[in-house]
């Protein structure tokens, strides 16, 4: 993925890249440094990558997201500690990272974001991750997640409804088997959604789940 393999920059440390990041202004430099931090593969670089979510350059944010995801579960703690409560744009990238990693520790944070974050991009991302994250939690949390996802299916934001379908598919597939029927029932109701995109996504979810059996 990276254009700058670690082997070519043996002397570069996280501290050096951090200093360069302070000075960088052009999107090209920011992108290069984000890729270098990811290629270095040191956990000390994760907080810097999370900061890059807030540089207000979507292309840089997307690259930083990719690099953070390479660290997998190691990134969960810094992501949760470093959520930007002021900049919803940056917050959406943090929530997307947590949603993709799918670690159970993100559960309470995602539930709170779905219930009370005002930014659609943050809520959509939190909803999308809830199925994957809840599947790693005990039954009571999975039941709560299921209930919340059912509510999301009638949200006024189509993006939340769309994200809920992906999450219900994840929960049906990876959650406790006794909840699968309820998750599938939610997907079934979305077939009747007034938005063609939503009913189509529900059909695709059903097909995905049918091939599992």
């Amino acid at each position: 993925m990276s254009s700058l393999p670690a082997a070519q920059v043996p002397s570069t440390t996280v501290a050096q890249l951090a200093a360069e990041l302070e000075q960088a202004t052009s999107p090209e430099d920011l992108l290069r440094l984000v890729r270098a931090l990811g290629a270095l593969g040191q956990v000390e670089g994760i907080p810097l990558l999370i900061r890059a979510f807030g540089f207000n350059r979507p292309a840089v944010g997307e690259a930083a997201l990719e690099e953070v995801l390479r660290f997998g579960e190691l990134a969960v703690k810094p992501l949760l500690e470093q959520v930007d409560s002021f900049d919803y744009g940056a917050r959406a990238y943090s929530v997307r990272a947590l949603a993709r990693i799918g670690h159970g520790d993100a559960y309470a944070f995602l539930v709170e974001a779905i219930r009370s974050d005002f930014a659609p991009s943050v809520r959509r991302a939190a909803v999308r991750g809830l199925g994957r994250v809840a599947a790693r939690r005990p039954l009571s949390d999975q039941e709560q997640a299921l209930q919340l996802l059912h509510q999301c299916l009638s949200d006024s934001d189509w993006g939340v409804r769309y994200a809920a379908l992906g999450a219900l598919t994840d929960l049906a597939r990876s959650g406790l088997p006794e909840l699968r029927a309820q998750a599938e029932a939610g997907i079934q109701t979305a077939l009747a959604d007034a938005e063609p995109l939503i009913s189509l996504r529900a059909q695709m979810s059903q097909q995905e789940l049918a091939t599992d059996l």
Binding site: A59, G89, A92, Y93, S121, P196, L197
Partner: peptide, 22 residues
């Protein structure tokens, strides 16, 4: 999807593309 434009706008543009294509 990969344009250097804010996330919510890219998502909304993809939705619009879907509706237009339909």
């Amino acid at each position: 999807a990969t344009a250097d434009v804010a996330l919510n706008l890219r998502i909304n543009a993809l939705k619009r593309l879907f509706d237009v294509a339909l």
